[in-house]
Each structure stands twice: as structure tokens, then as C-alpha cells.
């Protein structure tokens, strides 16, 4: 049985913001939230459900030729949208690779980028630093599924398959809160533990993600997402890469390579991107970029295997675009 909480289902966004008092939590799809409540990862006095706010659902054309996705749009809806599949294949593949059919039917794109860490110490009965304790148990403990980049004080990996694609596509995250609406680049939405290990996103008190805006992509832009996992389905990434590249006259112009499963945030690797600019995408340039992508990785005692896996994932993703 879940612990007790009040339940509010506001009809409007402004009411939802008003209801989001300090110990209230947003209920989007609920797939992550209810698990956290059941396991006592955190508590909530009140759940504020967004399910009656129709404006948060659906995929629409945005200004300047982009596409806007409401935060409450399910992963299944995003995965089956032909505009997303044609113009933003990296995102389409990311959401398709996430979770299971049932979870994709329930989980939302807004909730997906607000997931709490899946670290088994954080989810388990350990009073770790992120839960107000004194240390990260993964640093010295069972860390085969933890990060090789950007840990420093807390070594979880960001669980989302959509987020790396959103960063690679230079998407904007729309947010509404007590002081109005704002937009944050997907790249700046996620918070590194070294900056603040008590939260994963820049959302402030009373703020709600209301949607994602995907900018129009220049002609000749291609993208993909490669996810490596232990099972063929329904598993988190051990390593992965979202790649979006604009190719003109056979040469790479703008390129974004963002890693999944290896850092507490979607991890962009500008060094690897620089290797490719002005080059033709070939086995040779892809291998060189993949090597640059893992440069500086700092594996823990049990997860050095991720480095090779990651190099392979980046290489494969790049060659898919060649």
C-alpha cells in the first residue's frame, strides 16, 4: 500500500501551480513517482495531477517551423508521431527505446526528463548524500551501473533515453511557475551533482514542465540514437549516444553528440564533435570521434566496461548517419 497523500486534479495550469505547495509533488504519468513513494525515497503531502489539463497534451507545429510537444504527451504518442519520426529521428528512437509498451503508454515526455535517479542506493534503504546523508555509497560500493563522467560527489546515471536526444536537437524546455513562464535550453535543464547534488533539474519551487519545443532542423540534418543494454527491451542504457549532424556536400557541418547511461546528466562531448566538423563521415572519422568521446572518462571500480561500450555506441551511431 502506498503511504497516504492528498490528491488534487486541477483543471487549469495556473491552479496547478497554486496547488504545488512545498511538500506537494507533480503527478504526470506516475510511473516513477508512485515507485518512489512506495519505496519511501521521498514523501509527499499532496499529489497534484496534471491529467485534467488538456493544453499540456499533444504535438503541434511551433513557430519558425519547429514542433511543440506538451509535457503530458505520452512516450507512445511521441514515438508514433510521423512528424517526429521524419524530422527528429533521434528523439523518436530515444522514446521508442525507453521502458516497456505499458510504461510508454503511461509515462509522459515531461515526466521522462524529470525522473529521479535510478541508483540502487538512492532507491534503497541508504541515507545517501542525495537524501540528506553524508556520502555516496556507490563511490566505494556496487557501482557497475554507475557513471564514468561527471560524478564527483554522486555517481548515478541519468535514466532518460529521450533527454540525450533533446539536448542533441537543441530543444527548449518550457516551464511555468509562480512567477510566470520561462524557457530553458535542454542542455541547461539538467543539474550536475557537483553544482547541486540535491536536485537533478533547474526546476524551482512550484515550477512545472509544460512542454518541449524542438527547433526546425536545417536541410541535410540526420539523427539517431544508439542504446546499449543488457536485454533487448525494457532496460536502462548501459551506454548510449544520441547524434544529430547536418551534412552538406558530404561534409559534416554542425554536429551534436550526447551520451546516455554514463553520466548524471545527458553528457555532451564537444571534443568528439570538433573532430568531425568539416570531415566526411567515414569509418575512420567515426572511430576517431568515438575515441575522443571517451577521452577523460573516469570509470569506477566495476564499470570500466562502459568505456569500450560507449566508444562502440558512438561509432555505430555515427556510421548509421554516413
Amino acid at each position: 500500500m502506498l503511504p497516504n497523500f492528498n490528491y488534487v486534479r486541477p483543471a487549469t495550469l495556473s491552479d496547478a501551480v497554486r496547488q504545488l505547495t512545498p511538500n506537494a509533488r507533480v503527478h504526470a504519468g506516475g510511473t516513477d513517482l508512485l515507485g518512489c513513494l512506495r519505496d519511501g525515497v521521498f514523501t509527499a503531502d499532496t499529489l497534484v495531477s496534471l491529467s485534467a489539463i488538456e493544453e499540456l497534451r499533444g504535438i503541434r507545429p511551433a513557430l519558425d517551423g519547429g514542433v511543440a510537444i506538451g509535457a503530458m504527451t505520452t512516450l507512445t504518442t511521441v514515438a508514433s508521431d510521423s512528424r517526429i519520426a521524419e524530422r527528429y529521428p533521434a528523439l523518436s528512437r530515444g522514446v521508442t527505446a525507453a521502458a516497456s509498451p505499458q510504461l510508454r503508454n503511461q509515462g509522459t515526455i515531461g515526466g521522462n526528463i524529470c525522473q529521479r535517479p535510478r541508483c540502487w542506493y538512492y532507491r534503497g534503504e541508504f541515507q545517501c548524500a542525495r537524501k540528506g546523508g553524508e556520502k555516496c555509497y556507490a563511490a566505494e560500493g556496487e557501482n557497475q551501473f554507475h557513471c564514468v563522467f561527471g560524478g564527483e560527489v554522486c555517481f548515478y546515471v541519468h535514466p532518460s533515453d529521450a533527454a540525450p536526444a533533446l539536448v542533441a536537437l537543441e530543444a527548449m524546455v518550457r516551464i511555468v511557475g509562480p512567477s510566470g513562464a520561462r524557457s530553458v535550453a535542454a542542455d541547461a535543464f539538467f543539474v550536475l551533482p557537483s553544482k547541486d547534488y540535491t536536485r537533478e533539474t533547474v526546476l524551482g519551487p512550484g515550477e512545472i514542465v509544460t512542454g518541449i519545443v524542438l527547433p526546425a532542423q536545417p536541410r541535410g540534418t540526420y539523427g539517431t540514437y544508439r542504446k546499449v543494454r543488457a536485454r533487448g527491451a525494457w532496460d536502462f542504457a548501459l551506454a548510449g549516444a544520441a547524434v544529430v549532424a547536418t551534412i552538406a556536400e558530404g561534409r559534416v557541418g554542425r554536429v551534436r553528440i550526447v551520451l546516455s547511461g554514463v553520466a548524471p546528466i545527458p553528457w555532451r562531448v564537444p571534443e568528439a564533435e570538433r573532430v568531425l566538423v568539416g570531415q566526411r563521415l567515414s569509418a575512420k572519422s567515426a572511430a576517431k570521434a568515438a575515441a575522443a568521446a571517451v577521452e577523460g572518462a573516469e570509470p569506477l571500480a566495476q564499470n570500466a566496461y562502459k568505456v569500450d561500450m560507449l566508444r562502440g555506441a558512438v561509432e555505430e551511431a555515427l556510421l548509421e548517419l554516413a
Binding site: 497516504n4 492528498n6 488534487v8 486534479r9 486541477p10
Partner: peptide, 15 residues
């Protein structure tokens, strides 16, 4: 909570 949610009105249930 059980009545159909009226437009513009929140459905509320207490813990």
C-alpha cells in the same frame, strides 16, 4: 471527487 469534474474546477480528495 466522484462527480464529473466541472470545467475550470479541481477534483480534490483528502488523504
Amino acid at each position: 471527487i466522484g462527480r464529473a469534474q466541472a470545467p475550470g474546477e479541481a477534483a480534490i480528495a483528502t488523504a
